[in-house]
Amino acid sequence: MYRVKSGDGTPIAYRRSGEGPPVILVGGAFSTAESEAPLARLLAPRFATITYDRRGRGASGDRAPYAVEREVEDLAALLAVAGGDAALYGVASGGALVVEAVAAGLPVSQFAVYEPPYAADAAALAARAELRPRLTELLARGARDAAVELFLSALEVHPETVAAMRRAPLWAELTGLAHTLAYDLQLVGEGRVPARRLAAVRTRAMVVDGGASPSPVRAAARAAAQALPRGRHRTLTGQTNEVAPHVLAPVLEEFFAA
């Protein structure tokens, strides 16, 4: 892996692959550069892809206190590595980070996001408001296992699936990243679709959701796309929040190559 220093001196670890116009992939909760590697490999024949460990994850550093602006600076450093500008793709909270970066004026040629974790209805907003203090309290007292369980339940992961995950080696990786869930919550805030902020973004954009995802998630994706002046919306039939790279890659390739 390579490393670049962000604006506050924090080292950000990244990987590069492929040739062509640059695309930076921004992961969501529990993700690292390795998480986005399958998608990067599929895009590499057409694009120079950069995957990275967001701050506090993997081989990247961290510095307290956390601020969304620091993560935007991380992306600015990676854009410099990419040659000055690039396309961005972000999934879940990574999509929210992409929106923040573009709204902050970073040199982004175009961007796509998959199911950014916004809420478009009162029930979803209420659930988000209930989650944040509970998760913050668990993380404050070091209850990483409970924090991960709570977050997964908020994503509507079945309790039996969570129990199976606890018995698998993957669980240690999830709990090791638990502290970054607080970063994601701060990044998204109350969770409402930031329609006014999106309306000020003039960059070409695409918002994607899965056809098998919960209706509130899809409603939020549509609302975000509609708020973007140059936004388009795509639904991938049969996909959920765990979108299959081989299904997503052709859609991103078509959009970024246009």
Rank of each mutant, 00 (worst) to 15 (best):
D8S: 05
V102M: 03
L152R: 13
L138N: 02
E173G: 11
A119S: 04
E156P: 08
E34S: 08
A219K: 11
G189C: 06
Y114V: 00
E73C: 04
A199Y: 02
A123K: 12
L150M: 06
S31L: 08
L150Y: 01
L185M: 15
L135C: 01
S213C: 13
A225S: 10
R16Q: 14
R15I: 11
A129Q: 06
L138R: 00
Y52E: 05
S215V: 15
H179P: 03
F256E: 02
G105Y: 14
L106H: 01
E34M: 10
Y66M: 03
A37N: 09
L248G: 06
V162L: 15
R234A: 13
G238E: 10
D62R: 14
A163D: 06
R46W: 15
E73H: 07
T161Y: 15
W171S: 01
V243T: 03
L139N: 00
A225I: 13
S60C: 08
E160D: 15
A224Q: 08
A96N: 10
R166N: 03
M165Y: 11
A140S: 04
D184C: 07
A182R: 08
T240G: 02
P133H: 12
P117Y: 12
R16I: 13
P116H: 10
S31F: 05
E19A: 15
V99S: 10
G231E: 04
A221D: 00
E242W: 13
E19P: 00
